[in-house]
Amino acid sequence: MASGKNDELLFDHNHDAVDRRGFLKCMAWAGTGALCVVQGGVLKSFSLSDAQSRHAKGDLSFVQISDSHMGFNKAANPDVAGTLQAAVAKINALTDPAEFILHTGDITHLSKPVEFDQVQQILRSAKPKEIFFVPGEHDVLEDDGQQYRERFGKNTKGSGWYSFDKKGVHFVALVNVMNLKAGGMGLLGTDQLAWLEDDVRHLSNSTPIVVFAHMPLWNIYPEWGWGTDDSAQALSYLKRFGSVTVLNGHIHQTMQKVEGNITFHTAASTAFPQPQPGKADSAGPMKVPAEQLRSLLGVSDVNYMRGKRALAVIDSTLQ
């Protein structure tokens, strides 16, 4: 667990970080653990060493894992199976058991059947038996995602989007890694946008919404393609809801932003870290000393408490 003095330097620990314009950034870079929660429109951040963050028992608890990149074997992590197993062990050890798992894509590195097989094999040992997936660009290579959908998207629409409800929370799984355009970033496309608009149409404004997709649905760093070209359109359908949580992967580091009623969060990878935006020549795998690796990989524990405006996300590392 990444706890200790270092984490605390990154956050406002007066616990009263209020931005009057209703816009606030709370970033947790790779290697730190943080809990960011909005209560009554005020974002508060705690480090994981803060006892307050640990007894926040919610009405619904689930975990997000991301970017397992099974099949990757380069210097940045020669044992991605081992670190995925460590992530599963972490999930199984939670004091408040997770009800299900979200995997936000890049399940495999090269879309190979053996890579998918291995991930499914490892995830079988997870206590939560229900796992929801969205594809990353690495899962739909060569076949436009056909194999991915045969394995994980049997009853989905289009290229693999779907929605479901859990304890009054509406979950929407979006696909933004298909038919990417030259010079662009992630893409949802008009068919999916039309479906999304229709999917949330019947919901009341007080329904908590969780949207998950592989690539960030906010523009983190367009120079590296870290965003989605038509995400603003998707978010416009969600503006009327009191609580919207957007969970993404792809950038292999944790980051949070709160904008109005929408809380954005990206999860760490279970395979290898990537550099902070613009801090390297490219977004490629970041090589770190072996003993540091697990402190830069992680899982995210998400808690929903009835009556609270946003879901609480606790990132923890694999160390």
Binding site: E137, L141, A182, G183, G184, M185, W224, G225
Partner: peptide, 12 residues
């Protein structure tokens, strides 16, 4: 001939 990487379309 203009081309790109279909996985990372920022690459042209």
């Amino acid at each position: 001939y203009r081309y790109y990487c279909s996985i990372h379309p920022k690459m042209t």
